[in-house]
Design a protein around this nucleic acid. Structure first.
Length: 482
RNA sequence: GGGACCAUAGGGUAGCUUGGUCGAUCCUUUGGGCUUUGGGAGCCUGAGACCCCGGUUCAAAUCCGGGUGGUCCCA
């Protein structure tokens, strides 16, 4: 009981803000999310706890997508000639494609690529599937792994060679305006998804030199990591008819003509999980939104010699009750000190902890402790389901608000290039300024201020910070040091 | 694409400069036992490592070469 509160130097270290990179690395190992020791660069192992979080995250996503998308599954390998068909598209990926060149000992007559993304895998099949305007629209998605031969430093969940979780949706429409509308819908879908994870985001239209290769335009979701740098966590592309022409995807109109379809695609990856971990986590470790947490409630019995069995029995009973009520609950009945359990479950991000000891039992109560605030309250065992449910709602709300405030406090407005440069010197955060939208002028800004322009926000107006021309749309240009 | 640094139990480290005292240090982890248990328990007793290949040498964790893996900086 006289605890020597010595900080174990080998557990992950606390200073999340000052040493984010180390914090992130350590928490992934410590909380048993990812094992980074697999002996191939950029490829890592999902451990059971991490896999649970991933599974729950996907569950939320599928619940939303399944409303009007159909899930499919396409092959991993793309023949070289298909991959090469869409020239601009290939150019964007050729440096980072993995190739399968052999089958056993014999060399393949036709090289096969590991999909870097699945446009060229799916679209030849779409050409077979789409016949008539009555088939449209079509909305598909799949959750697969993709491969990119990253040459820069890899980092678990954020920059990897095997993207283990890539949700890609592909839609097909009869008209340009329907495709346009689908882009808007996809943005709404992603908003709903990120909101249910409490992740703040910035929605921008990517500058033309940074759009998806082969697309008309790209709308991207970015969030802000604790190190002050932005992270792209989702993209929505309007593909126009480019791929339709390349892959001959046509439909018959009511009039009997044959026209090329209009397409969109949009994707999310492992980075979503990285952002949940990074943005909500703190110096005690993970802090998970209840919907993604592997365990939502952990029960810790406070055992003394006297009443030991009664306490255990009450805990077991509570567990069955909570399970019946639909909670993901765990009873930690290990024979170690309660304090140690607290530290462990806090590190693993469990939103709620319920403690039951002899004193509580006499009162027919339990102590509930919430992970996000550290607050403890005593609650009646009677009707505790409702209390816990309320608290979970509150936790998500609190996490979301907290995260949005933090991100917004890092967005700074600049009226002049000098001002922007000064902010850049701080090496963190996002700068918002007006830009005319011209490519040449944008490149010039990137050069002068030494930033990467993230994208254009579709609101407000003013004069361009660089050339002084009228800027029809307000612009947010986050500093994006990659 | 260019450069710097690093590699010792599951994790973190000491030792390397000046080869031998290393039967390799400390923390954590981990098996067994007793006493404990309202915020990381204590004691006893076990377990666990010099990245790979080659070289120099009587002798290599230590020096040299190559490989592999990792970290960071610059374009």
């Amino acid at each position: 009981m006289q605890k020597p509160i010595k900080k174990d130097p080998n557990r992950y270290h606390g200073e999340k803000m000052t040493e984010f990179s180390e914090w992130f690395h350590n928490i992934l190992e410590e909380a048993e999310i990812i094992d980074q020791r697999y002996p191939v660069k950029g490829m890592h192992v999902w451990m059971p706890h991490g896999f649970m979080i991933r599974k729950n995250t996907l569950k939320i996503l599928r619940r939303i997508l399944d409303r009007d998308h159909e899930e499919v599954l396409f092959p991993l390998l793309v023949p070289e000639d298909e991959l090469a068909k869409e020239a601009i598209h290939v150019k964007g990926f050729e440096d980072e494609v993995y190739w399968v060149t052999h089958g056993g000992l014999s060399k393949l007559q036709r090289k096969l690529a590991l999909r870097p993304t699945s446009e060229t895998v799916m679209y030849p099949m779409f050409a077979l599937w789409v016949r008539s305007h009555t088939d449209l629209p079509m909305r598909f998605y799949q959750v697969v792994n993709t491969f990119r031969y990253e040459t820069k430093h890899t980092r678990p969940l954020i920059r990897v060679r095997e993207i283990t979780t890539f949700k890609e949706a592909h839609t097909i429409h009869a008209t340009a305006s329907e495709a346009e509308e689908q882009v808007e819908r996809a943005v709404e879908i992603y908003k709903e998804f990120f909101n249910s994870l409490g992740i703040p985001y910035l929605i921008t239209r990517r500058p033309p030199w940074d759009k998806f290769p082969g697309s008309e335009y790209t709308v991207a979701f970015d969030t802000l990591m604790p190190d002050g740098k932005t992270l792209q966590i989702g993209t929505v592309h309007n593909l126009g008819q480019t791929f339709a022409r390349t892959f001959e995807i046509k439909f018959e109109t009511p009039e009997g003509d044959h026209e090329y379809v209009h397409q969109t695609c949009y994707g999310l990856s492992d980075r979503v999980i990285a952002s949940v971990i990074a943005i909500h986590g703190d110096e005690s470790g993970l802090c998970l939104p209840p919907d993604v947490a592997a365990h939502q409630v952990v029960i810790v019995p406070i055992i003394f010699k006297k009443a030991a069995e009664e306490v255990m029995e009450a805990c077991r009973e509570l567990r069955s009750r909570l399970e019946a009520a639909g909670f993901r609950v765990h009873l930690d009945d290990r024979d170690i000190r309660a304090g140690r359990k607290y530290y462990e479950w806090e590190m693993r991000g469990v939103p709620l902890r319920v403690e039951i000891g002899p004193r509580d039992l006499e009162k027919g109560a339990a102590v509930i402790s919430r992970r996000d605030t550290g607050e403890k309250v005593t609650a009646d065992l009677q009707g505790i389901e409702e209390t816990l449910r309320e608290l979970m709602k509150d936790i998500l709300e609190n996490l979301r608000t907290r995260a949005w405030e933090r991100m917004e406090s890092e967005i700074r407005e600049a009226e002049t290039l000098e001002e922007a440069s000064r902010i850049v010197d701080e090496k963190r955060g996002i700068i918002s300024f007006m830009w005319c939208g011209e490519e040449e002028c944008g490149m010039d800004v990137e050069e002068k201020v030494r930033v990467d322009i993230l994208g254009i926000q579709e609101e407000g107006s003013g004069t361009c910070i660089n050339c002084g021309r009228e800027a029809p749309t307000g612009l947010t240009l986050p500093e994006h040091i990659s």
